[in-house]
Amino acid sequence: MSFVLTNLLSGLTYGMLLFLMAAGLSIIYGLMRIINLAHGSFFILASYVAYTFIRSGMNFWIGLVLAVIVIVLLAFVIEKFLISKVQSSETDQVLLTLGLIFVLGDLSLWIWGGDFLSVPVPGILNFSIEVGEIYFPAYRLFVLFVGILFAVLLWYFENKTKIGMVVRAGVDDMKMVSALGFNIKLMFTGVFLFGAGLAAIGGVLGGPILGMYPTMEYEILVNSLIVVIIGGLGSWKGAFIGAILVGLVDVFGKLYVPTFSMALIFVLMVVILMFKPTGLFGRVET
């Protein structure tokens, strides 16, 4: 029983990290119709940058904030000089963002080497909570809390704030929103940076749990793409539910059918797509 519960927590934690990734991916596509394959690179790059800050003696939380700022700045440059120039062509987007994965991946390999690294758990959370006979690592509970917090904040943002409503309307009908006189360019940049920021937070928080190693960006990208496919593009609710599903299947799959855990996730995706081609909560049809 305790075994199941601990793994349940692991699955949920992983799910929350995927949610932070997928939420950005999903809304960027939903609004801008941009498929950013380099989104996973933001995630892992954030952990690497935070690792450098924290290893040099900086406090975890300051390292977290600084790493997120660095990634958002990087995303700004990428959006302004590259992404915004290829909006019309899907194939161009794919090529461009694939190129970015290569460049960012090789730069990280250059700077941080190919070994497995990991961000240390912040001291204040470096303990376990004991419930009966089960020990829950406090850090994982914290990540779970942050994930849920962001889900609530995004829900609030989408439904209760004016910008949130404009963004949501934009997902449904971009033409209408631009006809209403909103600054689309600014909105796109904002959403792109916001998405990159979410991925960066996920990356830093994931540092102590997942660690960092070359090609990790593909793994996290594919998993979060599956989350987005399952949950439906352009939907934060979908990303949340999808992320929890994928997180749980991943953890329990690795436990019981180690080699085929990925295939399990994939079967899940295919089954859902068979019945709902736009995903569980999909609003965007391609």
Binding site: E90, P258, T259, F260, T286
Partner: peptide, 28 residues
């Protein structure tokens, strides 16, 4: 399976196929 989807969904589904084989082959 992939043909049920177009555009970005198609890309993602095909990407997922590749990654599944990658993980299976390296895990086995």
């Amino acid at each position: 399976i992939a043909m049920r989807n177009t555009g970005i969904f198609f890309l993602m589904v095909t990407l997922a196929f590749t990654q599944v084989l990658y993980l299976i082959s390296s895990g086995m």
